[in-house]
Amino acid sequence: MKTYILTRILLAIPMILIILTIIFFVLRILPGNPVMALLGPKAPPEVVKAMEHQMGLDKPIIVQYGDYLGSILKGDFGVSAYTGVTVIQELMQKFPATLELTIFAMTIAVFIGIFFGTYGAYHFGRTLDIAARVYSIFVYSFPVFWFGIMLQLIFGVWLHWLPVSGRSSPFMIPNHIYTGLYVIDSILNLEWPVLVDTLYHLILPSVTLGVVISSIFVRMVRSNVILSLSSQYVVAARARGAKEKKVIFKHALKNAMAPILTIMGLEFALLLGGAVLTEVTFSWPGIGSYLVTRITYRDFPAIQGAIVFFAMFVAIVSILVDIANAWLDPRVRY
């Protein structure tokens, strides 16, 4: 197990290196560069030259690439062309917002997925199953941003129930930041109004993202539970007099979980993509909004940094999924 995890981590390194290389060169092939974005098209050539020199953009591309690799190894991910602060500092500041959003969205998606998927499978071919299938196809076709805007319109603009943007109201930030996750920090500080405010702000973005992702989960859980419900050990458990609830959750769902977990891990990249759109729609100050803003400024180190960060996140999650799988299924040996 230990060696397996170590190998997985070592294998993640070339993957991240490849992503990093691709994004590095793609950014430099695409038109536009940070200097032009900062100074505008009418800037005098001497100023442009001086600034390019300052950012190191006048060096040969291979040297720039080497410099960038060095900054990754150093751990600072380079210096932002836009703010002059190291990218890692900015990412660490934005990351908790993204993490909080994805955790809540994932929770909602998993809950809907397991509930609808399992009951749909159990009522195979009957009303509840058809409802679950219609739901998942319907929701799957929602563009994330469109669904977000609709929720903003209904619950924010028309009903005035929920805030439509940001992580918190003014002056409603936890007094002392421990983790950066406002929900946890406000609980640690015992600041209940802040907690309520944070949760209020979390509802719409996490429902948006969670519902859209849940469509895949519902289908996945449903088909896997249908499969395990038809296995012999389910019939045998019933023949033993096991209660129906136990048969469904302990035998059918638990056995279906292994493939579900694997796919969930793979879907995590999709979740992050959805997170970018959701963050922009709800002005959520996470890595997604950060990435989009910095793309408009052609802030190369920041864009590279955000993408490498996402790649690492996906790699870590897939390792965690493998560990969870081994814990769930005693037959799995690494």
């Binding site: 012999q232 019939v235 045998a236 023949a239 007099g241 302990k250």
Partner: peptide
Amino acid sequence: RKVRGKDISMIFQDPMTSLDPIM
């Protein structure tokens, strides 16, 4: 349900799949 396993029980053709693999 109360009859199953207590008054009447059953064994099946394929023992390889009759036991829950993760239990």
